[in-house]
Design a protein around this nucleic acid. Structure first.
Length: 738
DNA sequence: CTGCTGCGAATTTTT
DNA sequence: TTCGCAGCAG
C-alpha cells in the first residue's frame, strides 16, 4: 500500500510526502501537483505511520479547496478509518469558538458579521458620537479598523501609535466597535481568527486539549496566512512540532488583507529545524506560458529562489489582442472564444479573468448579446441581495436576539409603521438602561411611546418570539416557508409585478430550495449550522466547472483553478497593475497576481486590453500594461498588426474594410451573424429616429427619445420600462419595431 | 411615517 | 453610470 502511495510521484514530491515529523515547508509552484502531494502525504501518514485520521488537521482558505481535499483524501484512504479534519481557517476557528465561547464571555450562538454589518456598526457609532461622516467616512474608518485588526493591534495600541487627532478618534471608534460587537454577541471575520488565540492564552488546559487533538497540522496556501493564522497553527503545533505548510510565495496575492509573505519566506528562521522541499516541475502549462510567467515574476526582488520548469512542448504563443473600448475588447475575446470552440475546445475550459469586478459588466454584455453561455463567479453575491439579507436578518435575530444590527435592519421591513424617530428612541432608551435592544421590546410600556406604536412594536416582538418557539417544532424548510409567508414578502413582490420584483421572488424561492437541500444533505441540520455555512461562503465556492459555460471571474477568485484557454482582460496601466499607493510592495503583489493569472492557462493564454475605457461615464485613455512588456517578445503574438500601443491606429480598427486586407484582423464593430446560435435580438440596419419603438436584448422594449450623430456611431437615448439608457447604435443591437 | 427627489460619492482584490 | 442617503412634502 505504501509503495502505491509513492508511485507516480516525482522525487521531490516523494520526499515531501515522506517527511512526516517536525516542521516542513513545501514550496509548491503553480501546477506542480500540490494537492496531489497533500493527499498522498495524508494517505502516507495514515497507512505507513498508522496515524489516526482524526488527529490530522488540514487547513485551507476556501471551502472549495477544503471540499476537494477532503474528497480526494477520502477516496484515497477509504472510508471507515475515520475522518481527517479538513476545513478553512474560518470554519475551524468558528467551530472551536462555538465550543469554547463561554471562556471568553461569548454565547455559543454568536453571529458572524460580514463587512457590511461591520460598516453598519461603524456608521451607528459615528452617529452616536456625533462625528461628521464627511470627515470620518464610514468605509474609510472601517477599513482602518480592519487593517488594525489584521495586524492584531488593539484599540489602545492604535491610540498609542496615533499620529493625529483623527487617528486618535478612530482608535476610539475602534474601541466602541469592539464593545458593540461583544454586546451584540457577534464576531467579525478577524475575530474568528484572533479570538481562538485569546481562548488559548487564557486557558492552557483548552490549548492542551487541542494540541493533543490535532497532532499533525497541514496548511495549504501558506503564503496567504496573516499574523493571526500564523499564530493559530503555531500554537497548535507547539508541542508536537508537526507542522507542514505548503505554498508558493510567488502566488501571495492577499497582502492587502494582512497576509504576510514573510511567513513563508522566513520559514527557516522561524522553524530552524524545519525541512524544505521544492516542487518546481509544472505539469499544467506549455513551456511558453511557464517561461513567460517566470520572466515576469522574476522581476520581483522579494521572493524565494526557485524556477518553474516543464517537460511539455512549447505550445502556442501568447496572443495579445485589443479593442477600441471595453466593448471592443470584449468582442475581441468573443471572436477568440469562437475560434477556440471551432478548434474543439469546450466553453467550460475557457475563462476570462480580470482585475476588478467592475470590468465584468462590459464583458458580460458582449457574451449575453452574442448568446455565449457564460457564468460569472463573484460580484453581487446571492446572499448579498437585499431581499435575501432581510430574510437572513430574521434568521439571525431569532438565533441571536442580541444581534441589534439584524434587529434594526428588519424592525420596519416589511413596513410596520415603526419609523426612524421611534427606532431612535428605542436605541437611546436601551443605551441609557444599558440593556439589549431586543430585551426592551418586551417591556415596551416603560419607554412612554404612544399606544399605537407600542402595539406595533409588541406585534413585532411577538412575531419573533413565535418563530423562536416554532423552530423546534418544524423542519427547517417548513419553518422558513412559514416565516416568509407570514412576512408577506412574496405577495407584495407579486403585487409589484416588475421584472425586479419577479427576480426577487425567484431569489426567495432559491433560498428556500437551498434550505431544503441543505436539510436533505445534512442529518439533524439546524438553522445555526446553515447560517454558519452561509456566513463563511466565498465567491469561488459557488464555481461549477461542469457547466458548459465560459467562466468570468477576478484573478483572485481564479487562484487554484486551471483552464485550457485563459484570457487576461484589462491589461492596461492603471488597471492592471492597478494603481493606488504605488509602493514597490504593491507593485510586486500586482506582478504576482499576473503570474497567478497566466499560470492558470494550460494551453493558450490571451492578453487583452482596451484603448479607451469608460469609468463613471467618462472616457479614460489607457496604455497597455507594463506586464506585456516584461514578457520576452519571442513568446508573444500580435495578430492585430498595426502598431500596438498607438491610439491613432485604433480609429482604423473599426472601419469595415479591415478584414478584407488582413483576414485575422477582426472588425469588432460589425456583428451581423451570431457566433453562438441565435442572439437574443437580431440587429436591423437602418437609421434611428426619435419616437421609434425598439427592442433591446436586456432592457426589452423601449422608445427612442433622442438621437445624436448618425450611422453606426449615433448615440441614442432610449426609454425602457423602468430606466432610460444612452446607447451607441452600433453596439446596442437594437431591433426596430414597426 | 412614507415616499419621492436630487445630489454626491464610488471601484480593488475577499474569508 | 449606479447606488445610497439626506432632506422635504404629503
Amino acid at each position: 500500500m505504501t509503495s502505491q502511495i509513492l508511485a507516480g510521484l516525482n522525487p521531490p514530491q516523494q520526499a515531501a510526502v515522506q517527511a512526516i515529523d517536525g516542521p516542513v515547508l513545501i514550496f509548491a509552484g503553480a501546477g506542480s501537483g500540490k494537492t496531489r502531494v497533500l493527499t498522498h502525504r495524508i494517505a502516507y501518514m495514515i497507512h505507513k505511520h498508522n496515524i489516526l485520521p482524526s488527529s490530522i488537521l488540514a487547513v485551507t482558505f476556501t471551502n472549495k479547496a477544503a471540499g476537494e481535499l477532503r474528497q480526494r483524501v477520502n477516496n484515497m484512504v477509504g472510508q471507515g478509518v475515520g475522518y481527517v479534519n479538513v476545513g478553512t481557517f474560518h470554519s475551524i476557528c468558528s467551530r472551536i469558538l462555538r465550543a469554547e465561547a463561554s471562556s471568553i464571555g461569548y454565547n455559543q450562538n454568536f453571529t458572524i458579521y460580514d463587512d457590511s454589518d461591520g460598516q453598519r456598526v461603524v456608521k451607528d457609532i459615528l452617529n452616536t458620537m456625533q462625528l461628521s461622516t464627511d470627515y470620518y467616512k464610514p468605509a474609510g474608518v472601517f477599513y482602518q479598523i480592519k487593517a488594525a485588526k489584521n495586524k492584531m493591534q488593539t484599540p489602545s495600541e492604535m491610540a498609542e501609535l496615533a499620529m493625529s487627532a483623527r487617528d486618535e478618534k478612530i482608535a476610539e471608534i475602534y474601541l466602541s466597535y469592539e464593545s458593540t460587537l461583544k454586546a451584540n454577541n457577534a464576531m467579525d471575520f478577524d475575530d474568528l481568527l484572533s479570538k481562538p488565540l485569546e481562548v488559548f492564552e487564557n486557558n492552557p488546559a483548552i490549548l492542551r486539549f487541542y494540541q493533543n487533538k490535532f497532532k499533525y497540522i497541514l496548511v495549504d496556501e501558506y503564503q496567504d496566512t496573516n499574523l493571526a493564522q500564523f499564530k493559530f497553527v503555531e500554537y497548535l503545533s507547539k508541542e508536537s512540532k508537526n507542522i507542514c505548510v505548503v505554498g508558493d510565495d510567488d502566488q501571495s496575492i492577499y497582502g492587502w488583507r494582512g497576509a504576510d509573505i514573510s511567513n513563508i519566506i522566513d520559514f527557516q528562521q522561524i522553524f530552524p529545524t524545519g525541512q524544505v522541499f521544492k516542487l518546481e516541475q509544472n505539469y499544467r502549462s506549455t513551456e511558453t506560458i511557464i517561461k513567460a510567467a517566470n520572466a515576469v515574476v522574476s522581476k520581483n526582488v522579494y521572493r524565494a529562489d526557485k524556477v518553474l520548469w516543464t517537460e511539455s512542448g512549447k505550445g502556442a504563443p501568447i496572443t495579445v489582442l485589443h479593442g477600441e473600448t471595453e466593448t471592443g475588447e470584449g468582442q475581441a475575446i468573443l471572436h477568440a472564444i469562437h475560434d477556440q470552440r471551432n478548434n474543439g475546445i469546450e466553453l467550460s475550459s475557457m475563462a476570462v479573468l480580470y482585475r476588478t469586478n467592475a470590468q465584468s459588466r462590459a464583458l458580460e454584455d458582449v457574451m449575453r448579446r452574442n448568446a455565449v453561455p457564460y457564468q460569472i463567479v463573484g460580484g453581487t453575491k446571492f446572499y448579498d441581495r437585499k431581499e435575501i439579507k432581510d430574510i437572513l436578518a430574521y434568521f439571525r435575530l431569532i438565533l441571536n436576539p442580541a444581534d441589534s444590527v439584524a434587529l434594526l435592519r428588519i424592525i420596519n421591513v416589511p413596513s410596520r409603521k415603526i419609523g426612524k424617530t421611534t427606532v431612535e428612541r428605542l436605541v437611546k432608551f436601551a443605551l441609557s438602561k444599558d440593556k439589549q435592544l431586543y430585551s426592551i421590546l418586551n417591556n415596551i410600556d416603560e419607554i412612554g411611546l404612544n399606544s399605537g406604536v407600542e402595539k406595533r412594536i409588541n406585534d413585532f416582538y411577538q412575531f419573533i418570539q413565535k418563530y423562536i418557539d416554532l423552530i423546534s417544532e418544524l423542519s427547517l424548510y417548513h419553518w422558513a416557508i412559514a416565516i416568509i409567508d407570514e412576512l408577506g414578502f412574496i405577495e407584495s413582490f407579486r403585487a409589484e409585478d416588475t421584472p425586479d420584483a419577479i427576480s426577487r421572488i425567484d431569489n426567495i424561492n432559491e433560498l428556500l430550495a437551498a434550505l431544503d437541500e441543505y436539510e436533505k444533505n445534512n442529518e439533524n441540520a439546524t438553522l445555526a449550522q446553515y447560517m454558519e455555512e452561509v456566513s463563511l461562503l466565498s465567491d469561488i465556492d459557488q464555481f461549477n466547472d461542469e457547466a458548459h459555460k465560459v467562466t468570468l471571474m477576478t484573478l483572485h477568485a481564479a487562484k487554484g483553478l486551471e483552464f485550457d484557454i485563459v484570457f487576461l482582460a484589462g491589461m492596461e496601466q492603471g488597471l492592471f497593475p492597478l494603481e493606488r499607493g504605488d509602493s514597490t510592495e504593491d507593485m510586486e503583489e500586482e506582478r504576482r497576481l499576473f503570474y497567478v493569472g497566466l499560470t492558470r492557462a494550460k494551453r493558450v493564454a490571451y492578453l487583452t486590453y482596451a484603448m479607451r475605457r469608460t469609468r463613471f461615464g467618462e472616457f479614460m485613455i489607457n496604455t497597455p500594461s507594463i506586464f506585456i512588456g516584461e514578457i520576452p517578445f519571442e513568446y508573444l503574438n500580435f495578430p492585430q498588426k498595426e502598431k500596438v500601443g498607438s491610439n491613432r491606429s485604433e480609429k482604423k480598427m473599426s472601419s469595415t474594410k479591415r478584414h478584407k486586407t488582413k483576414p485575422q484582423v477582426r472588425t469588432f464593430a460589425k456583428k451581423s451573424k451570431s457566433l453562438f446560435g441565435e442572439p437574443e435580438v437580431k440587429p436591423k440596419s437602418g437609421e434611428y429616429e426619435i419616437g421609434q419603438e425598439v427592442m433591446h436584448a436586456f432592457f426589452g422594449k423601449g422608445t427612442i427619445i433622442n438621437v445624436s450623430g448618425g450611422g453606426p456611431e449615433a448615440r441614442l437615448t432610449v426609454v425602457f420600462t423602468g430606466s432610460t439608457k444612452k446607447l451607441v447604435a452600433k453596439f446596442a443591437n437594437l431591433k426596430i419595431l414597426d
